[in-house]
């Protein structure tokens, strides 16, 4: 059973894990800089940077672990990430006054080549595939 969920980080999952890892690193560095140097200027935006960094870290760790539990947490992380990108992306356009400075998720991740909005969708698709294969391998484990 454990073997089938380890497919999370095999094949295409390797690439996904790498991209999540890069985003975890980049977002953490960004949030660290923003908190250290200018938190007062845009507290909401910088808090969201930190939040996105945490989501990317959780997703990366879950992909690396590749267990049944981490599969579930990873689905949650991808959903939070997708909702976050949509809500923050929309808010940053509708209420720019809330965001004196941009976040990783501003304008649907335009500063990062829109990868932030594509990544959770690819992640969810991949996790569903892995989950189905794992369930087919051992139907008793739901």
């Amino acid at each position: 059973m454990a073997v089938s969920y380890s497919a999370m980080h095999s094949g295409l999952g390797r690439g996904l894990t790498a991209v999540y890892g890069i985003f975890a690193l980049a977002a953490t560095a960004r949030a660290g800089y923003e908190f250290a140097s200018k938190f007062d200027q845009a507290p909401l935006a910088y808090s969201l940077s930190l939040f996105s960094a945490l989501v990317y870290i959780v997703a990366t760790v879950c992909f690396v672990l590749g267990t049944r539990t981490s599969h579930r947490i990873a689905i949650g992380a991808c959903l939070v990430e997708f909702v976050g990108v949509i809500v923050v992306g929309a808010l940053s356009l509708i209420r720019p006054d809330l965001f004196p400075d941009s976040t990783v998720w501003s304008a649907f991740g335009i500063g990062y080549g829109f990868i932030p909005v594509i990544l959770p969708l690819v992640g969810l698709w991949w996790l569903r595939r892995v989950g189905r294969a794992a369930q087919a391998a051992s139907p008793a484990q739901v």
Binding site: R14, G15, A18, V19, I22, L25
Partner: peptide, 24 residues
């Protein structure tokens, strides 16, 4: 920090995903 992590990963990874990590 990023480059050595990617390098070690690509070194340990004996598949096509090693070069892909370096591409990323």
């Amino acid at each position: 920090v990023l480059m050595p992590l990617a390098g070690v990963w690509a070194f340990a990874e004996l598949s096509r995903w090693g070069p892909l990590v370096l591409m990323a």
